[in-house]
Amino acid sequence: MTSTAPVWIDDPTNAAILAISEDRLQGFQLDPFGEIAERSGIDVATVLERIVAMLRSGTIRRVRQTLMATNLADGSLCAWQVPPERLNDAFEWLFREDPFSGHVVIRTTDTATVGSNYRLWTTLKVPQGYDIAKYAAFLARKIGAEAYRLMPAKYLFALGVGHVRRKGMEPGARADVLAEVKDTHIVQLTDLEWRVLTAAKREFAPDEIVRDLWRARAAEAGVSLDEFERIAKELNARGVIGRFSTFLEHVKPNEAAGGARVTRYNALFHWKVPQGREMDAGREVGRHYIMTHAYWRDGGPEFKGVNIMGVAHGTEKETVLAHKAAIDEHLREAGIGFDYSNVFWGGRSEIKPSEIAPQAFADFCAAQGIDPETMR
């Protein structure tokens, strides 16, 4: 039976659900849909119906338990300089063929500037035991990159989407306290823990969206439901579980909603703050509610020495720039100057979770004709 439930984000019930389900369910949730119902004030049957309808329509891109991948695999933001005639082919290969590239984005700047010839940007994860620099060199050869820059996160200051709750947010809106700092130390797991984690992180198909969510995943991992939940809670305590989330399709127009978009502009902000003030600056930037991501990353000479980066989204370019200006002013008020800043705008974009399982990496290398041991 086809659902007649509204599927767009402007429906009040959907908006109430999404305000919680996008990025408010931190850690491993035993009963995520019951938790969404309790926090949103919407009964659980309606929560399930609406999430399924939005997932089938494409309003929601995926539903999954996220991991703190920065604590499970070596990861990096990577900017690629690719000849213009190869740019689209490189984009397609990284999106469709590389399981370890997550976000794949073509970016531009408003004016030609340092780094603006690096048009292709990706996030990259390489499972434990393997060398991200070696793998990036392989990717560069594969896509014909002339140059590239790996920019691993040293610390995280903001990580969460929440497009619905950010709509209409005033520039400068921020928390009363400094952003928390998340480190990127790698946590070692047993084979059993990897089995549970791999089953837990796989995205849910519409027919898997049920109240008793984890029973089938426990069977997939080859353990009892009680054992599955025990291990997941232990992993959560060790800091490797992210959040349970419904990810909106925030880039492409939605045909079921007449071509409407969740957001139109994706901006990667850059700041170069004085050496030794990176942690202070990151915690100030991360206070701003508009920031979906904020990191300390070193851009190197390719990007004029920037060291604080973050992402914000909006439906109007002027509004996104107003948020950037408010953060700039706040940094100055906090006594943190910066002698360079820039905005890289996102254009064509595809997003998928990066694979982080060691066996998946070994299998992929073998399929590419590479001895996995040479990537250690």
Rank of each mutant, 00 (worst) to 15 (best):
L120E: 07
E220Q: 15
E350I: 02
A147T: 01
M169F: 01
D98K: 00
Y265C: 06
V273P: 02
P32M: 06
V114H: 06
V82C: 09
G144D: 11
V44N: 01
A147N: 15
D183K: 03
Q359F: 10
R217C: 04
R230G: 04
G259D: 03
D10I: 04
Y135F: 15
T319R: 12
D89N: 11
L178Y: 05
K125G: 03
I106F: 02
R119F: 05
F100K: 01
D207L: 09
H103D: 14
V311S: 09
I132S: 07
G258F: 06
F228V: 08
E97V: 01
A367V: 00
H103E: 13
D43K: 05
F364Q: 11
A334V: 05
E193C: 11
G129F: 06
H323S: 09
T122M: 05
K167V: 02
E355V: 12
A133W: 02
L331S: 10
Q128V: 14
V251K: 09
I290S: 07
L124F: 06
R348M: 14
R217W: 05
D280G: 00
F100Y: 10
A145G: 14
M169Q: 11
K252G: 07
M169N: 01
E85P: 03
V320I: 08
A205S: 12
A79V: 09
G299E: 03
G276V: 00
R165Y: 05
I143W: 06
P301E: 14
K134N: 08
I231S: 14
G305L: 08
G299D: 02
K125T: 08
L77P: 00
E350N: 14
E316F: 10
E373Q: 15
G162R: 01
S76H: 06
F338N: 13
N236H: 14
W345F: 13
E227L: 09
D98Q: 03
D212H: 08
K233L: 15
Y118D: 04
V63N: 04
G115C: 02
G337I: 07
V210W: 05
